[in-house]
């Protein structure tokens, strides 16, 4: 019964194609006559389907049981297609009773460009394909940038081990200190004591521009000079007074040497000569 019905349907279906070869992307149209169950286009055609089919017009049926179906199609891919595969009954069953409805989709582009509308040389949308990866990357970058900035700032601002301040340049006071200490403690030989005393006088005479004066006048001025007299008079007491036999306290050594701090040392030969 079914087989007979099928055969009748095939016989009852006639196929009229407007144009056998339809360019890709261009709507083509075929008209078929069918007297069986009403037909419709397959419902689940996707946008990426190589062929889209729509039943755009149904006429007839008023005087005869035969209906004329106008079927529009758009081919996305060049090639031969059977529209019957995209036609179903209203209840969704395949319209297998229909005869083949062949259409030819041709590409008007040269062969080297291919024929699939959906196959493009450009890669598909990246964001759509790797959304999570991108989000992950953004998150990583979001975290990494502050970390990078923080680390970089920490490295740059890393407290450089502070080098110990260089020892202050030695002064004449430093040079004199051991000699004066020794003089205080009676640790100098007589000739060294004499040298120390005369050295102090010569030094201050030069500093005070007294070298051109007779030595006695220079010494008189040095003995009343507020800076020069401090150590000169102290050394006089240590070296010349009777009290020099007893050790002198060293607590005032810094005060005695204070006036010499601003002066550079002189060659040692001059001291020890």
């Amino acid at each position: 019964m079914i087989c007979a019905h099928f055969i009748c349907a095939i016989l009852a279906t006639t196929f009229v194609a407007d144009d056998v070869a339809t360019p890709r992307g261009i709507t083509g149209s075929v008209t078929i006559s069918h007297s069986g169950d009403p037909l419709q286009a397959k419902l689940d055609q996707g946008l990426s389907s190589p062929m889209l089919v729509r039943v755009t017009d149904i006429t007839g049926g008023s005087t005869t049981p035969e209906y004329r179906y106008r079927i529009d199609y758009i081919g996305a891919v060049a090639g031969s297609f059977n529209l019957r595969d995209l036609i179903t009954h209203r209840d969704g069953t395949p319209a297998i009773e229909l005869g083949a409805i062949p259409v030819q989709i041709v590409s008007e582009l040269p062969d080297k460009f291919g024929s699939d509308l959906f196959i493009v040389s450009a890669k598909p949308m990246f964001a759509r394909s790797y959304y999570r990866v991108i989000i992950g990357l953004i998150a990583v970058i979001w975290i990494a940038i502050p970390i990078f900035v923080f680390v970089r700032r920490w490295i740059l601002n890393k407290p450089v081990p502070v080098a110990p301040p260089p020892p202050p340049a030695p002064t004449f006071a430093d040079q004199l200190r051991p000699l004066v200490e020794a003089a205080m403690n009676q640790g100098l030989a007589v000739h060294e004591q004499a040298r120390l005393e005369l050295l102090l006088m010569a030094f201050w005479s030069e500093q005070r521009n007294l070298a051109s004066l007779p030595p006695v006048q220079a010494i008189e001025q040095l003995r009343i000079d507020p800076e020069a007299s401090i150590l000169i008079i102290a050394v006089e007491k240590w070296l010349h007074s009777r009290a020099s036999a007893t050790p002198q306290p060293t607590k005032d050594l810094a005060q005695l040497l204070a006036p010499f701090r601003g002066y550079a040392p002189i060659p040692l030969a001059e001291v020890s000569q």
């Binding site: 006088m201 006695v216 010494i219 010349h240 007074s241």
Partner: peptide, 13 residues
Amino acid sequence: REYTIPEDFFALA
């Protein structure tokens, strides 16, 4: 003074 100092020496030299 109770002791001589170089000033004496230079003054009298």
